[in-house]
Design a protein around this nucleic acid. Structure first.
Lengths: 150, 150
DNA sequence: CCGTATCCATTCCGATACTG
DNA sequence: CAGTATCGGAATGGATACGG
């Protein structure tokens, strides 16, 4: 059941991150969680995912500290799955994925959902890379410094 | 060979994005491409991925317009795989994944690779969500506005 | 060196049936 | 409603072997 490909001890944070949320369902579950989905059945209905797979993914996400199990707020005997601080820290990942999809995978005029800033009702501006002085930073202006070992 | 789960016509840009780069290897291939890896053998050696799977993933990424095939620069009869503009637009996704990994999946003092701004030699600052006025925006201050249909 | 093709094992996933 | 158990098919992955 452990899904680790052995990336979990990689010195590359991207690889470790993908080892936790890099499968086909986890990120969608997390997206729904940001959207306010909390119940097993609600995830299932939203994602049309097989129930055994959902069981497995929820378990993994709880084990990796992304989701937390809390008693259901309606007094039923079941659980609700809510984002931990670690899970909430994934928000920028979801937002950049959204931005990339919006900008690259929709035809002109094709409709899609939009992330709104509820303090002003406007769409949330794109996340862009800045350097230490707050200036725009192009990908070509960066490089990855590897750690000594490996 | 088509991997689409049928999310490719979703109105959610996150779902569409994950339909293209949401499997276990694609994002790692793209990470390597940002790192300057271009050759089949170099991807294979870096990722320790089976060659048939690598063939398949490279083909998918080319088909979806993330990578481009160009004749090898060394005059050999083969190809190099380079990021298209659409592929380069994934940089913020890689960066936020990296940030999340750095902040949440490493023990204190544990070493990891670092993204460096080569114009000043300093680590690239974290990408954070801002509103239209440039002020920090918490995840709770946002919501996803769905499109009418579905 | 770059891929493709094939074989086999493992994993993933969906459907369904079942339990509380 | 919330999960578990099981089964079969599909996808994935590793290890070759093969050809350009």
């Amino acid at each position: 059941m452990a899904r680790s490909k052995g990336l979990s001890d990689s010195t590359c944070p991207v690889a470790r991150a993908l080892d936790v949320v890099g499968d086909r369902w986890s990120m969608l579950i997390i997206r729904d969680a940001f959207d306010g989905v909390r119940r097993f059945g609600a995830f299932q209905e939203s994602l049309l995912i097989a129930r055994n797979i959902l069981t497995d993914r929820l378990k993994q996400l709880v084990e990796s500290g992304v989701l937390d199990c809390v008693p259901a707020s309606d007094g039923s005997a079941y659980w609700e799955y809510v984002l931990t601080p670690r899970g909430k820290a994934l928000f920028p990942v979801i937002v950049t994925l959204r931005q990339w999809g919006e900008g690259n995978l929709f035809e002109r005029g094709e409709k899609h959902s939009v992330l709104i800033d509820r303090t002003n009702g406007k769409p949330v501006p794109a996340l862009a890379l800045k350097n230490a002085d707050g200036k725009a930073l192009a990908m070509e202006e960066t490089f990855v410094k590897k750690v000594e070992g490996r």
